[in-house]
């Protein structure tokens, strides 16, 4: 049962192991990486002092009492940046598989792929130009 999960095929691993095999170390490492920050915070409770003071717990605003809550309104520019990011990040994701198979084994795909990529990036550049002209990239 365990050997089926952790199966590694070759003696000197030329290829990547089975699809699941590669991710077991990631799982183990994730446990390590979560314990590492949580443990000192939780166990530190027994070591560090904890004295309540009203002034100490106040949000820092250069010594002046805060007037309002901090969860305030902020400029809409951040929202526009997030929207633009979504569009262009999806572009990057689409370019990744294209880039992996671009050269291929026998060079047969390349001619078609170059043309296709030019069309794809061309459409995106039109959108990019539109966003630029509309002032979405300006930080007023």
């Amino acid at each position: 049962m365990l050997s089926a999960i952790l199966l590694q095929t070759t003696n000197v691993p030329k290829t990547v192991g089975g699809p699941i095999t590669a991710y077991w170390p990631v799982m183990i490492f994730f446990v390590f990486a979560v314990i590492f920050p949580v443990l000192p915070i939780v166990l530190g409770r027994f070591l560090r002092p904890s004295i309540y003071g009203k002034g100490k717990m106040r949000p820092y605003e250069c010594g002046i009492d805060p007037v309002t809550e901090a969860h305030d309104r902020f400029t809409v520019r951040y929202y526009i940046v997030a929207m633009l990011f979504l569009i262009f990040d999806v572009e990057t994701i689409f370019l990744l598989p294209w880039a992996v198979i671009y050269m291929g084994n026998d060079f047969s795909f390349t001619k078609f792929a170059l043309l296709e990529m030019f069309i794809f990036i061309g459409i995106l550049i039109v959108g990019y130009y539109y966003a630029w002209r509309k002032g979405a990239l300006e930080w007023a």
Binding site: P59, A70, D72, F74, R77, Y78, V81, A82, F85, L96
Partner: peptide, 29 residues
């Protein structure tokens, strides 16, 4: 954090991270 400096810093940082992540991802292609 319920702090105005923190809020501004967090917003700025998020905007900066997502903006430069694009060119980072595209440079890897």
């Amino acid at each position: 954090s319920n702090n105005k400096y923190s809020l501004m810093g967090g917003l700025r940082s998020s905007a900066q991270l997502i903006s430069y992540e694009l060119s980072l991802g595209l440079a890897l292609i």
